[in-house]
Amino acid sequence: MNAHDITVAVSNLTKRFGPLTAVDKLGLEVKRGEIFGLVGPDGAGKTTTLRMLAAVMAPDEGSVNVDGIDVVAQPEQVRERISYMPQRFGLYEDLTVDENIRFYADLFAVPRKLREERAARLLAASSMEHFRKRLAGQLSGGMKQKLGLACSLVHAPSIVLLDEPTTGVDPLSRREFWQILYGLRAEGVTLLISTAYLDEAERCDRLALLHGGRMLYCDTPVALRARMPGALAEFVTSTPRPLRDALQGHAGVVSVLLIGNGVHVHMDQAERLAELEGHLHNSGVPYDDARIVAPSIEDLFVALLGDAGAKP
């Protein structure tokens, strides 16, 4: 990766809370104009990592460089270049949509004309131009998140940090939210987003899979899926739980995961599929179809978490 393309560089980043190591020697590089995802379950270290990148929290060890600025040595200077949207973004519910945007624009001394131009563009992109006079407290969850993003972007930051921004948001609002992110990427904005939605992680350019404060892997979604050992079979069935119970613990079965109207079975080898089909037939467990499929990020993550020997 060309050094001139790197806008976020993290080395040996560590944060402890008493006996708990929340982030453990994390190292990563993010390219300019990239959507970079931090993926993992609760307690993986995603929020703590973003807070250190945003200069909200100081690391115990390691270095953070954002847009050429040492975050630890110059926290105030870096805050002018970034925007950080935490899980509970501080909207003022007794202010209107316009008033909230104006408040955040004033914090960064954005001139009035520029503020009005940016607000109009951001609200149009999020389909909220007709709600400018509505109180923030009267907005839906998805609209509050889109307003929070608009407030975060009104000062035109070059780097945006988003901590699980679509948690609890309806599917339509999630899709609209991601359309805004794609538009920002097209403008050269760098985005770091944490998410617990593994299907959402597929939308990122690159991913860091975190668990227990450690990085398991970091790569593109395509390259990460290719790392999954063995093979994945999908069983389509109207009775997924009995099928899961019948295959769990069977020889050669690494893990079994319920997915929509079917079951994903991680096997040690693709040739195991015929054996599993025979086992289901002999057990009287019905299914409609079975085939080898490409793994998703969710399949990969479940496999990694089930591997006690997984190393960063």
Results as ranks from 00 to 15, higher is better:
residue 50 L to S: 06
residue 52 M to V: 02
residue 53 L to C: 02
residue 53 L to T: 02
residue 56 V to T: 06
residue 57 M to C: 04
residue 58 A to E: 12
residue 60 D to L: 01
residue 62 G to T: 12
residue 63 S to F: 01
residue 64 V to T: 04
residue 65 N to T: 12
residue 67 D to F: 02
residue 67 D to E: 13
residue 68 G to H: 09
residue 68 G to T: 06
residue 70 D to I: 06
residue 70 D to R: 06
residue 73 A to V: 01
residue 73 A to C: 02
residue 75 P to E: 09
residue 76 E to C: 01
residue 77 Q to P: 02
residue 78 V to H: 05
residue 78 V to R: 06
residue 79 R to E: 05
residue 79 R to V: 12
residue 80 E to I: 01
residue 80 E to F: 09
residue 81 R to I: 08
residue 85 M to L: 15
residue 86 P to G: 07
residue 88 R to P: 01
residue 90 G to C: 03
residue 91 L to R: 01
residue 92 Y to F: 15
residue 96 T to F: 11
residue 97 V to H: 07
residue 98 D to P: 02
residue 99 E to C: 05
residue 104 Y to I: 02
residue 105 A to G: 14
residue 107 L to A: 12
residue 109 A to W: 00
residue 109 A to T: 07
residue 110 V to Y: 07
residue 110 V to D: 05
residue 112 R to W: 05
residue 112 R to H: 10
residue 112 R to K: 14
residue 114 L to P: 00
residue 116 E to C: 01
residue 116 E to H: 09
residue 119 A to G: 06
residue 121 R to I: 06
residue 122 L to M: 08
residue 123 L to H: 09
residue 124 A to M: 07
residue 125 A to W: 07
residue 125 A to C: 03
residue 126 S to H: 03
residue 127 S to C: 10
residue 127 S to I: 00
residue 128 M to E: 11
residue 128 M to H: 11
residue 129 E to G: 04
residue 130 H to Y: 01
residue 131 F to M: 13
residue 132 R to V: 15
residue 132 R to H: 03
residue 134 R to V: 14
residue 139 L to P: 13
residue 140 S to T: 13
residue 141 G to N: 08
residue 142 G to S: 08
residue 142 G to H: 08
residue 143 M to L: 13
residue 143 M to V: 06
residue 146 K to Q: 10
